[in-house]
Amino acid sequence: MNNRTWLISGVSSGFGYEMTRQLLEKGNKIIGTVRNKSKVADLIENYPETFSCEILDVTDFPAIRNLVDRSFEKFGRIDVIISNAGYGLFGAAEELSDDEVNHIIATNLTGSIQLIRSALPHLRTQGGGRIIQISSYGGQVAFPGNSMYHATKFGIEGFCESVAQEVEAFNIGITLVEPGGARTEFRYGSAQVTKLMTEYEGNPAHNFLNMLDASKSLAPGDPVRMAARIIESVELEPAPIRMILGSHALASTISTLKARVADYEKQTELAASTDFPAGE
């Protein structure tokens, strides 16, 4: 694998940290964004020449554009953009506050959109590059108690699938990575739980409480192996539009999509009944 320059958002923990660590060990240059540099103090100390750590709140959209512009100006070329910053928000839709709804959309969805949009002119000008959007199998499969997370992931998948077709002619490839559950801080540390209502006790909307309890079960995904597969995907040509990580995630996604297709196929007559008759 050739050494490249990568811009990765959200490198303080989870996949972001692990990808950054692996890439730096192999001699790559990384522009990594965090909200708190203390979480990556080891990387700053060990890789002073190849790790450029930047403070960024991805809900600050002008700051995103400024960072991207400065980074391309400084490094001349950035080969890979990885949009990774995000978090999980758990609770029934009725339980969530307006601020919680707005913040997760701004972080997971709009922040990712603005990062990609900011990078596109530079990638086009330099003749190509690769964009990797960290999504989730929750961008295809929905569970109760996680409605706003699913809203952001279903949304970013539609955005990226459309943009991929727009920029293919410029040699820009886009890949949506859909990990299953992994043993990262995302699940066992940074996940946010709203103020729960007693009316939903015993409701499927609160099933997530068991999932977030590491003493009851551990996610099957190995973040080290997952990070390695994400990095390796940059070598694939053409860029795969989707890449799912985790056997459980793959099985669940296939089952969900098969059921969805079967439901659509039952609606053939209904769909046709809304067309103008042939010849009109």
Rank of each mutant, 00 (worst) to 15 (best):
I230Y: 00
V141F: 15
P121N: 04
G139C: 09
I81E: 07
I105H: 08
I244S: 12
D57V: 11
I132L: 07
G128E: 08
Y149G: 00
R130K: 12
S83W: 03
I113V: 07
A93I: 03
Y137P: 01
F159N: 03
Q192K: 08
C160M: 05
Q133M: 08
G221D: 07
N210G: 12
A106H: 00
R21F: 08
G32T: 10
S217H: 02
R124I: 10
D213Q: 09
R70T: 12
R242F: 02
C53P: 14
Q126E: 00
K37I: 01
Q126L: 00
S97M: 13
L23W: 04
R225P: 03
G86P: 05
C160F: 06
E95N: 02
S233H: 04
P220V: 13
D60F: 04
D60E: 13
V40I: 05
K216N: 09
W6Y: 10
T110N: 14
E18Y: 00
G189Y: 10
L123N: 15
G16A: 09
T198M: 08
A191T: 12
S52I: 09
L89S: 05
S12V: 01
S255P: 00
E95Q: 08
L236Y: 12
A93K: 02
I172A: 03
Y17P: 09
L43K: 07
K266S: 14
I174Y: 02
A271W: 08
N3Q: 10
V224Y: 06
G32F: 10
P220F: 11
E161V: 03
N171K: 06
S13N: 15
A92G: 06
R242K: 08
L270A: 14
I78P: 00
S252A: 15
S162L: 02
S12Q: 02
R130P: 08
A92H: 09
K153D: 09
T256W: 10
E265S: 08
D42R: 06
S38A: 12
T253N: 06
S13Y: 14
L218P: 07
L89N: 03
E54W: 04
S217A: 03
E178N: 15
L218R: 08
G128A: 10
